[in-house]
Design a protein around this nucleic acid. Structure first.
Lengths: 210, 210, 210, 210
DNA sequence: TATGAATGAGACTTCATTCAT
DNA sequence: AATGAATGAAGTCTCATTCAT
């Protein structure tokens, strides 16, 4: 009665183990990149033996890809244009920019890893890289849609350029924060960015009309 | 002709060997990053045995740092404000932006490696990272100086924000090119960036005066 | 017969592997010392790949320390004063000396390695050295205890000197045998040593009383 | 006139370079043993490039042997029986023991290295080991001679045993000092050692006569 | 649902040594 | 009388991965 079955607590819980592995992996991979993330390090960080990691994930590539995938939805949410909100277009753009800024602060591991993967050119492309670039494309599409919605009259090419510029600015500001820490207020910078992009868009739309 | 076939096999030539090693290293490290750059790979690429690399460089860290250092001056030249040139401030800013864009296209290995190093958070910071960040600070200072010269009346804080934004944009556009290749014209994007930053600067200066 | 040919190739058996590694290591390290013991040599001698050695031992230092530790108890047994035995104190001391002599002949690897480690002054002290010196201190304590038991009336300082002298003689005789082989009968030498130390002890005790 | 020939100080001085190399080698080899002494370490310690070491010495073995050889005479002097000195035999023996004790304190590197070489059993015996054992044999012969001179009537076998015991004690006391430092006064211990050996010798001689 | 043990490949680095100058 | 440069071999250790249990 006092000790019914010896094993009680340790009833193998696959889901929890998987989470622990991913938690460890996201942290390490976010700091050290693909090559720098060794299975042994993940094992040490999550407390499970290396062989257990291979029970949950096919191989290292699969693990890294899963890390990217798991952060996917959470992060992408920041790019939603809040439906039917009041305010001028500029105000709405600025609000989204603030959300994005906050998302970068909240999910830095995900993005740092993603950017590292994106920059690397290794012989066989890691699946995680592909996944990250897809997420990026989705984010870009949302930005493009936002531009078309809030600044009517933009031609395709202008949208393409503005979207690219908007994404580049976001990337660059994220990099800056990773390097300089909190020396600069990210939200302020993003609002400046949003404003400049919005003005450029407006001008392009006007010019297109003329 | 002057020296017929005096030295047949290996003439010890330290300077040339060092260059060959650096040439190989810059290419590999620029593509694969710090961890991805194995001494064996560099050895294979430059034709010298691994142990010879250690004659020229204390260790891998030293090699990577040397790679960064060597690209330093070349790359930094792009940031000079062409002295006493004709044209409006905007035209001059735009010209510099074009130069920078070209420098990014010309020295992508240096920058890709640097950015990767900058993003990584490894337990012991590679010396190459430190060096790269120093180069970056110098570039930032030049941009700040340029802003103060071409747009008088900017207060310190505005200069700081504008400089940060300018650098971030450059980083982001570089990342974009690395990911998307030539889908977007980098020079065009940089000119747009320069223009937007210039307008923001002008506005800030005017507001400060008022 | 009971288990016909169930396990064909490699049945994972950690305990046995560990022993095999230690067996190989004790022999090599006992002959060649710390630096002279390469993991590759141990690997060749025990049949397991080098990487398997690292499964069982953190690093080379850990392996050497384990070698010392394993021989510990076996060897220390020789120093027990046989309880309540008949005979004069001198006879009893001589008997112990004989045991010690035999132990030196039986466990020469352990002691040779230990002495080599003890003599070396490397920048970071190997753990094996620490362990060996601890074993030595225990042996010294037993000798001191023996002296106090068999030769009453010795003051602290005399015990200290006699113990040191007894240990030194044992070390020296061991070294001699390692160098000259069996040219000299170790048991005879140890009995002489025991006798001389005993006489010196008796004299010191008497002098102290007077 | 002011700067006659550019190179003046650095006129290659073979003898001095050789000394510098040996000075560095004796220290390192005395601390780390044969395998632990790398040419690179000696090079760093003496300031000359590795290739210069090979100009002065055929190979590493030759260098270590030279280290042993250089300390040879200095050290051996301690074993001279001071000719025709006054005092009882015991007093004279004690005086020599004191000299030997001092010599161990003065030339510890030489002896530590020698003992390490003596203990190691490597596939090809280093020449330094051979040389050291020869020095040892000479020292033994001197001790034997001393015994025969100061304690007449000893038979060959007794001399052999006593000499061996005397040397063993010396080795052991040296080892002790290396391990425990100055916790014990070496001269005192050596005097005790000399006295005990002398008494044993006297007794053996008397017994032989009877 | 795990995991202890094993393993070949390859990582970085040092080794003793040579050779042309 | 040296030395800058090179080099194959070997050093310690980590890697991603597998497999029997």
């Amino acid at each position: 009665m006092t000790k019914p079955q010896t094993t009680r607590k340790k009833r193998a819980n696959g889901v929890e183990s998987r989470q622990r592995i991913l938690d460890a992996a996201v942290e390490i991979a976010g700091e050290r990149g693909y090559e720098g993330t060794s299975i042994a390090a993940v094992s040490a960080a999550c407390g499970l033996p290396a062989s257990s990691i291979y029970w949950h994930f096919k191989d290292k590539d699969d693990l890294i890809a899963a890390v990217i995938e798991r952060s996917f939805d959470t992060w992408l949410a920041a790019f939603e244009l809040p439906g039917e909100e009041t305010g001028t277009p500029l105000e709405r753009v600025t609000a989204v920019a603030g959300n994005v800024a906050k998302s970068l602060v909240d999910a830095p591991d995900f993005l740092r890893l993603g950017l590292m993967l994106a920059l690397e050119r290794r012989p066989v492309e890691p699946r995680g890289r592909t996944v990250f670039l897809q997420v990026r494309d989705i984010a870009s599409a949302k930005i493009a849609e936002m531009a078309e919605t809030l600044v009517p009259g933009l031609d395709k090419e202008s949208v393409r350029i503005l979207t690219a510029y908007a994404v580049a600015g976001a990337d660059g500001l994220f990099v800056q924060r990773e390097i300089n820490g909190d020396a600069l207020d990210l939200v302020t910078m993003f609002e400046l960015h949003a404003q400049l992009v919005f003005e450029a868009a407006t001008r392009m739309a006007t010019r297109g009309e003329a």
